[in-house]
Structures are given as C-alpha cells and as structure tokens.
C-alpha cells in the first residue's frame, strides 16, 4: 500500500466520485484557475479532467452553499468548497436554516444530498482565519458533520459523504493536508457515524478527532515510555456522534479525557464528558478531563498562537496529571 498525503487522498475521493456519478459537481472559490486548483490545491487538475463539472464561483458564500442546496434539491450532488471554515459564517443562514432543515420541515419531500468541504484550524492567519466551529455545526439537527484525521479516513469518509442523501459538513484541518498515510488503491468507503479505536491501551481513554488525533498519537508514544497506555478513540463523525466505543473503553480504563483544538467552553468535549458521565458514571475513577484550545481570538504572533492551541505535550501533561490523581 502506497503512502500518500491527506490532500491527495481527498483528491482521489473526489476524482473517483466524479467518475462514478455524472450528477456529482464541485463548485467553490478559486478551485479551477487559482494556483492550478484551490487555495489548498485539493481540486488541482480536476477541472481539466471533468470539463464543466468543476467550476469557479463568485466570492459569495451564501450563494455557494445556497445554490448548492437548490441543485441538490433538484437531484444534482454538489460538493461545495468553502475556502476556509471562517467564511462559512457568511453562509450560516443557508447551512442552518436551509441545508439542515428542509428534509424535516417539508416532511421528507425534499432531500439535500450535498457536501460542504472546508479547511479549519490555524496557520499564522490571526483571529478571523484560524477557527474551529465543530461544536456549532455539530449542534444542528439535520446536519451531518465529519472530520477525518488520517489520509485513509479522509478518502473513505469523503466518498461516503458524497453518496449520502443528507447535507454533510466535511471539515479538513489545514495542518493535515501535508500529512502522509497508507491508502489502498482499491475502492473502499467508511460509513458516517462510526468511531474507531486508533490505539489500544488500558490506562486512560482519550476521545478525540481531527488534528488532535495526530497529536494524541504522538503523546501516546511518549506516555507509553512512562508506562501509561492510552486507549484512543477517533470520533471521525461529530454528528451523529458515536460514543459506543468510548463507553466500552471507559468501562475498562475507568478514566477518560477529551482532546479538542477548539474553544473549551460549550465545546464538543463538554458534550462528550456530559454524555459519558450520564452513561458510564459508575465506571469512572476520576473526573473526565478536557484538553482544549484557549479561549482567545487567535493572535498572529508565533509564540502566542503556539500557546493558544493544544499540542501533544498538553496531552502528555494532562494524562500524567490524571494518572497521578492530580486533578
């Protein structure tokens, strides 16, 4: 099996689905001409391979999402790219009031089989361009929210999202585009709404997703050297969220920690912690810990940005504290 980048895995998913289904189209800002295909080059070359089906749009996110919804209502399967997740705010009405609601509000008469792809996270781009809206998106009934951590998952989940009959918000952490991993040449799909154990361990359950999965795996190596074995659960889909593996895990480890990049208050971590204590309270030997981003608008300065976002060393420190009952 060849190692490819996260970016290449996404592109292969897009290419395979464009090839398989003539109703699949890709629209977004600067996905054709600019730099040969996208601010993050995920669609590079696809416009040439699929003439007329990969198109540049005006810079008008409310229309990119809204026109996508209309096309999806009419039986097209659009993949719309929002250049960064920060720009999704411009389209929030379309995402929340239309994409998420139409199927239910019109009593099943309308389907919105659309994927909204968007890079999230930080990269020395300051407060308006360095955000995560995982919990905002995941709190909306009717949306499906997916955030892969590995090239393998990225490809399989994106293909499943494209074939799904519901609106899927597909979050791509921009720090992951260059990461590499094994991806088979043969076709595979990964079902939405199914979490995965990425590492087996007996001391501490860590629930995470996206870039923080990568950081958690680095932390797990360090901690393993100290005799602390993490059981790492990758959520992969944030809504609907599959906590079945996490619960089983907590029953064995009796300790749980949630690791997320976004703001701590009202975050996904809060939701996971609340659900775990509702469901497996009797198995817990310690309070559920949260590692999360600091609650400040992201600064530009390198040292301040580094201090705002959690990395593997934060996970290591939190795990050590938990295992020595310092909470």
């Amino acid at each position: 099996m060849a190692e490819i980048t996260f970016r290449e895995a996404l592109k292969r998913a897009l290419r395979e689905e464009l090839t398989r289904d003539p109703d699949v189209v890709i629209w977004g800002e600067d996905i054709v001409a600019y730099g040969g295909g996208g601010a993050y080059a995920v669609t590079a070359g696809l416009a040439k391979e699929f003439p007329g089906r990969v198109r540049d749009t005006p810079i008008a996110e409310e229309a990119i999402v809204g026109v996508g919804i209309g096309a999806a209502m009419g039986g097209v399967r659009p993949i719309v790219e929002l250049m960064t997740i920060n720009f999704a705010l411009v389209a929030w009405d379309q995402i929340v009031n239309h994409a998420a609601k139409l199927h239910h509000m019109f009593n099943g008469q309308i389907k919105v089989p659309m994927v909204m792809r968007s890079p999230a996270g930080f990269g020395r781009t300051a407060a308006t361009h360095s955000q995560n809206f995982d919990s905002w998106l995941a709190s909306v009934p009717g949306l499906k929210v997916v955030e892969p951590a590995t090239p393998y998952d990225a490809k399989g989940l994106l293909k499943a999202a494209i074939r799904d009959d519901d609106p899927v918000f597909f979050i791509e952490h921009l720090q992951l585009y260059g990461t590499r991993g094994e991806v088979p040449d043969t076709e595979y799909l990964i079902p939405l709404g199914v979490s995965e154990r990425k590492r087996e361990g007996r001391h501490l359950t860590v629930v995470t997703w996206g870039r923080m999965l990568v950081e958690t795996m680095k932390a797990a190596k360090v901690l393993s050297g100290e005799g602390i074995e993490l059981d790492v659960i990758d959520l992969r889909t944030l809504r609907p969220m599959d906590l079945s593996l996490a619960m089983q895990s907590v029953k064995r480890t009796n300790r749980a920690m949630v690791v997320e990049e976004g703001w701590r208050s009202m975050g996904i971590g809060a939701e996971v912690a609340a659900t775990l204590q509702e469901q497996v309270f009797n198995y817990l030997d310690a309070p559920i810990a949260r590692v999360a981003g600091l609650e400040v608008p992201m600064p530009y300065a390198k040292n301040l940005e580094r201090a705002t976002v959690p990395f593997s060393d934060d996970v290591v420190a939190a795990a050590r504290a938990m295992m020595t009952n310092q909470y």
């Binding site: 009717g142 519901d166 906590l243």
Partner: peptide, 17 residues
C-alpha cells in the same frame, strides 16, 4: 425525517448516539 439516510447506530434522540 430529520435525516433522509440514518447512519449506523443512530438512535431516536436525533442528536448524540
């Protein structure tokens, strides 16, 4: 009809599984 295509494990509360 909150979802046209319910996913595996999805339960009635329509939110977290």
């Amino acid at each position: 009809k909150i979802y046209a295509q319910p996913v595996a494990n999805m339960q009635i509360d329509g939110s977290l599984i």
